[in-house]
Nucleic acid binder design. Structure first.
Lengths: 219, 219
DNA sequence: TCGATGCATCTTGTATGCATCACGGACCGT
DNA sequence: ACGGTCCGTGATGCATACAAGATGCATCGA
């Protein structure tokens, strides 16, 4: 069976999630030209909900619509990698700075939440559960951004994370010790947070994102 | 005539621009519940393009769609004001910092562009052309953000600017000397930029945004 | 009197049909 | 051969029709 993520949701949602999933996991490679009709037939629905899904995906930067021609699956370009990482550093760095400026109490709460995620990731790593590990990675950064309590930035970050997912596809052959490195980098960020040193936290964030960039672009 | 901004564009675009304009200029006040049918009839088109426009406006945070009920024009809340201003400070501050870290040449290019906008604004102010003045204000900040050359941040900023427009509506009774103050604050930012002092530039940006906040929320 | 029920109405969700537009290749005149 | 035109094919853009959910109110029963 083809990976139907869909359940008892609206047709619009099914079209959106299914198509997005297929773009993110690479079954629809960048550069592909797809049409509303194709997707509609695959999902056994009319073109109308598919059309709405396409519009949403275009707004998220995953599709590019050409009038009367079709929808192009946007390919990840080096410049997009840079743009995403720059925006991530900006948003996450801001969350860190804001946190360091907040009360020690609040900082501790977030720190505890982050450590919790790290522990789960260690467990996932021990059992070689890549799925859970990736999920933890996503949660770690999300918790961080959530702490800034800014819905606009949080939404932006969600879109950045999706794009990041797709960029990671090309570089699945990350070294066997890369999970360890990620954990260490995350831990370093938490440590800096605990000391309340905003500049240090930013530096460690940058180290982490530089490593991410290297793993994405440097093969 | 009712302010038809539309021309020979697609029905979708007309629906989008017209509805957005009506939300931004306040003819559709926050809290209003509108329907696809209403707008479709007003614009003499079917519900289909209106529907697509509504989806886009929801993604931009201007509408909130309720299934089988209608579309709520989102009211600007104090917390949204804060979120928008925080995001603006983050993005614009980043552009400033990046510029200060760039070559003096590039900085000079942007600085010249900014000064040019300021001159136009002074002209607009002299002739009491409020329209042009506001347009210049928009351009000033856009040029600044564009200098960071990050499409993702630029797009975010465009959406922030739209929301800001709406927030300004309530405070039209800004003092008669407010344009002067805005000009001075903008000039201060350019001055800081010319010296290449990133921290100073950020401080002056913050002063400008604080003034904006005061004018929006403080009555 | 008060709460539950059923209905009228309004709105969205989805399907379908048709017009329009863009592209690609065959055809034709040179 | 070659360049331009014409038309077939396929996609979207929009209109319209129908189905189904949500709300409010009148009505009915205790």
């Amino acid at each position: 069976m083809t990976g139907s993520v869909s359940a008892g949701l609206s047709a619009k949602e099914r079209a959106y999630r299914d198509t997005k999933a297929r773009i993110l996991d690479g079954s629809l490679p960048g550069g592909d030209l797809i049409t509303e009709g194709q997707v509609a037939e695959t999902l056994a629905m009319s073109r109308t909900p598919v059309r709405e899904a396409f519009l949403r995906l275009e707004a998220e930067g995953l599709l590019r619509l050409f009038p009367k021609r079709g929808a192009l699956v946007v390919a990840v370009s080096p410049s997009e990698v840079e743009a995403v990482l720059e925006a991530r550093e900006l948003v996450e760095g801001h969350a860190l700075a804001k946190l360091c400026a907040a009360s020690a109490e609040e900082r501790a709460v977030v720190s505890r939440a982050l450590v919790e995620v790290l522990d789960e990731q260690r467990g996932a790593l021990a059992t070689s559960d890549e799925q859970s590990f990736a999920e933890g990675d996503r949660r770690f950064h999300t918790v961080l951004v959530e702490s800034a309590r800014n819905p606009i930035l949080l939404e932006l970050y969600a879109s950045l994370r999706d794009r990041q997912l797709r960029m990671n596809l090309g570089s699945l052959e990350r070294g066997p010790d890369r999970p360890q490195a990620i954990l260490a980098q995350h831990q370093a960020i938490v440590d800096a947070l605990d000391t309340g040193d905003a500049d240090d936290a930013r530096v460690r964030l940058r180290i982490h994102l530089d490593a991410t960039r290297a793993s994405v672009v440097g093969r």
